[in-house]
Design a protein around this nucleic acid. Structure first.
Lengths: 165, 165
DNA sequence: ACCTGAACACCGTTCAAGT
DNA sequence: ACCTGAACACCGTTCAAGT
């Protein structure tokens, strides 16, 4: 494990446990047992850390989707459950442009592969499915549905339009 | 026009033209011809400004949706075009919890009304439609679709599952 | 090779003081 | 009633200096 990977480990738990505002270079360094300037020997800047977390999140989400049972509903469940288990990482991974030039090749397509497969290779359908799931998850994580809304039912309604094509 | 409304006017164009990082109390004050501490005589804090912009965005988006022609496709077009015309305000309005206690009553339901109407009153369908549109818009604004992707076609595919119910 | 203290240019916010 | 300068507790980042 490189020192950079240790930093990403600590940054990941700091982000998920205490929120994005708590992820500061000074606090991160303190949890690493060093001072903030020392971080820059292992990481180019804070954006580099965020890009690293984004890449890890995509890899982990992609693996979680790939492990889902066949069919649309299990895939949707896997997507939603990953987001609910890692809400801050999900937001970090999806709400900013992908740092594609910093990303290891194939990460993006690997994460998308299970959705493309479920769409039978239809790229427009795959993008629509992804957007549907992302919209539902994003609004849920932001607490935008009325309190007490039956989101399981909303997911079933949302997916019903995409069943048996 | 109250002084608070003037501040929100300036904040709105500052946010939309120069981005969220440029929306600082100091810069906002400078454009108002005052210093940062003076803002606090008209506004309780920065969160108050953001909540005000959020409320305005919802009102404006809701009016834009209400003016759309009948049918699902025109409503979807109106949603997407408002978001593309006000990308920073759209993100501000949707990516954070609604400050419901600061919001004038009825704002949230008024913005949602055109979607609920298009869904024939089915609340689950309305939420699914909203999430679909939000997901497509959010990913487009974050540049998450592959460069050159035909998003018009993706929208048609996305909406086809919701047509004639 | 790795870490440090000091410093720089910023933030949001408070407050006593001025008119 | 409205605005100000000075200050406080923070940011991310740079850099000369230490081991």
């Amino acid at each position: 494990v490189s020192r950079r990977d240790e930093i990403l480990d600590v940054a990941s738990t700091l982000l998920e446990e205490d929120g994005p505002d708590a992820l500061t270079m000074r606090e991160l360094a303190a949890r690493m047992g060093m001072r903030a300037p020392s971080l820059y020997k292992h990481v180019s800047d804070k954006a580099d850390i965020l890009a690293g977390l984004q890449e890890r999140a995509l890899l982990d989400l992609g693996a979680h989707l790939a492990a889902a049972g066949p069919g649309l509903a299990p895939l949707a469940d896997a997507y939603r459950s990953w987001a609910r288990d890692h809400p801050r990482l999900y937001e970090l991974a999806t709400r900013r442009p992908l740092a594609r030039e910093r990303l290891a090749p194939g990460v993006e397509s690997a994460a998308a592969a299970p959705v493309v497969a479920a769409a039978g290779g239809d790229e427009h359908l795959a993008r629509a499915l992804w957007a549907m799931a992302h919209g539902l998850v994003d609004l849920e994580l932001s607490d935008r549905f009325p309190p007490g809304a039956d989101l399981d039912a909303t997911w079933r309604t949302a997916l019903s339009g995409f069943q048996q094509r």
